[in-house]
Design a protein around this nucleic acid. Structure first.
Lengths: 359, 359
DNA sequence: TGTTAGCACTCATCGAGTTAGAGTGCTAAT
DNA sequence: ATTAGCACTCTAACTCGATGAGTGCTAACA
């Protein structure tokens, strides 16, 4: 309809839209033409702003909750805002040194245990942003088997210990039907290590297992059990550990705090499996900055259709990748969140990427 | 003031109080004299009931939210109710066979992994009762060390695997400053197993460690590191794993669903450490029935001063004890909760106490 | 003396009606 | 193209009275 449909948004409209969104992010209340007229430096009367706002609404960037209210951003509006914001992120990123220091201190209580570290990161992020956060334990995609050992615990019990790259340890108790002498056990250990060490876990498949069974000769049935158990313990998706923090932060935002929404979100955070979609999604896509933003309906997870979610992939080296996420209202302070996330991730990678071997 | 102060409550008052509480448990609304007059079989007019209610209020068993409302039970009232209820629990307990069957089916999808089992129990309990639930992983008080082994993963890395009674496995990666040859490693393993196997973990103390270091001779410094690490990994309270379920059930009870309370409760459930008081408390006391009830202010945990909490200790044999808990409104259906808990616990103990060795 | 009917009183809840004010869209003037 | 002005809309907040559930008290009753 408008002449400038191809250009989509002239500079003035852009500025007005940004002003609307920024104001709304701060106040959380619909913003009117008068406010913008004063807020911006382009000297325009509220009437002019009104005209522009009518246009912006027609284009779908803003919404009027009811006839005589101001406007609030639509998902599309947020999306535009975030996208243009992200484009000059590199510029801002150098200017966040002061904050780095603060966060550094929070994390530097260096926890030796991985899970403590993860909890700490989630908490730090939650405290700093006032949103709900989650972090998934790094999973070892493309990880290799580093060491494997069977030991006898009991007459009929063995324990299988498997160490993967990145020093992830898994173990499994297995019962054997017939007793196994020391010699057999030693042979078995050698057999396993010879064939499995250094292998990416993806390659430990049925074919390989069958071949190993053959080589085990007379003990093939026991070996079968053992290898199956080992394979199990390695592959076990280990139900994708996810830690959360600051769930109750959602109560700080009235638009999420009503019972129905809150209940859904809280449930999603408790049944952490429901968050796995998010994790998988993030890991699969790789953005240049590593950070992704899902606004409102863009979210895959049902309970979050009224939220915005910011996720990122962190990497601690050797293919150990995990996902970190922030869940908040759509009027989230995206800039701060993105910055904080960036900072924290570089801290994590610095502290734990290098000293990885200590863990 | 009243003549019958020593007797505390005559039979009629008792009946009226019970009627009030029962009605309130069902409806959740203040109950008036007229309701009771009809509800009970003692044929009394509402006026008489009113007099009795005035007495009961003076004695502190019931409360009037405002002048022209009915009465609701006070903590003291609930307490009396629960205590008398518990006294004839043994009678009821034989009559819950039908429910057993239902729960059995829910649990029988026998999970081989302990943590799956625990999650399943928590969920089952939450679904069945419509309250929030928690369960702590069994901790091995008085547990003994069953097996210990050091293996070399890398030139400078060892992995220590410790198996405790009840097949709880712990492990720890440790870095050594100088390389260790096979022979030393073997010796070390023998040394550790000789001296530590079968020992209750409480006895692995500084004195013992010092003695071991001495015996290790030239390798005493390495041994020191190793033993320290092993001791660490055993003793590490392992931050008392706690699983929760059905947190969002609290939204079903308006008296808990307001933002402030809900936020506090949810936070407590997320920061599971805050629940540890509850666990410790329960483990320390041993009631005859094994079930304890905390009403309102009786709760140690701050966030639960407006709730009732029912806890119990379960035991899977060999001193592996854990705590299971239900958190709900004070007008909780205590009978059902106690019954369900009893049932579920006997199921757990039956299924996992005996087959413990398979885990 | 314990029980009850009756009555005046209290108070939360609900809906209707009112007001205030924030914000809009449109029109006409600049 | 911009703006001032104005009529209009709609929400939020408030008042007000009616409603009704429930009480406490008193006096009558068995």
């Amino acid at each position: 309809m408008e002449g400038s449909d191809g250009v989509e948004l002239d500079e003035r409209k852009m500025k007005i839209l940004q002003a609307i969104i920024k104001t709304y992010l701060e106040t959380g209340e619909p913003v009117g033409s008068r406010t913008i007229s004063k807020y911006t430096d382009l000297n325009l009367s509220s009437a002019t702003i009104r005209n522009e706002m009518a246009d912006l609404e027609e284009m779908g960037y803003i919404i009027q909750p009811h006839t005589s209210a101001g406007r609030i951003p639509s998902d599309k509006g947020y999306r535009l805002y975030v996208d243009t914001m992200m484009s000059d992120m590199e510029a801002r990123i150098s200017a966040r040194d002061k904050e780095v220091e603060e966060l550094k201190e929070l994390l530097v209580e260096k926890e030796e245990k991985m899970d403590h570290m993860l909890k700490q990161v989630a908490r730090t992020l939650a405290v700093n942003t006032n949103y709900a956060t989650m972090i998934s334990a790094p999973s070892c995609s493309g990880n290799k088997l580093k060491f494997i050992q069977l030991s006898r615990v009991d007459a009929r019990q063995l324990v299988a210990v498997v160490v993967l790259n990145g020093n992830i340890i898994k173990n499994n108790i297995l019962n054997v039907s017939e007793e196994m002498d020391d010699e057999t056990l030693l042979k078995l250990n050698i057999l396993l290590n010879t064939h499995l060490n250094g292998l990416p876990i993806e390659e430990i498949n049925l074919g390989l297992i069958a071949r190993l069974k053959q080589q085990a000769g007379i003990h093939s049935d026991i070996v079968g059990d053992v290898i199956d158990a080992v394979a199990d313990s390695i592959k076990s998706d280990d139900d994708l550990q996810i830690y959360t923090s600051g769930t109750n932060n959602i109560f700080k935002y009235p638009e999420l705090a009503d019972q129905e929404r809150a209940s859904e979100i809280i449930n999603t955070f408790e049944e952490k499996q429901l968050l796995s979609t998010l994790v998988q999604d993030t890991l699969s896509k790789e953005e240049k900055s590593g950070i992704q933003i899902y606004i409102g309906d863009e979210n895959q997870v049902e309970a979050m259709k009224d939220c915005s979610v910011v996720t990122a992939t962190y990497e601690l080296g050797e293919g150990m990748k995990g996902t970190i996420g922030i869940i908040g209202p759509k009027r989230m302070d995206y800039e701060k969140v993105v910055d904080t996330m960036h900072t924290l991730m570089s801290q994590m990678e610095e502290l734990y990427g290098k000293n990885r071997k200590d863990m």
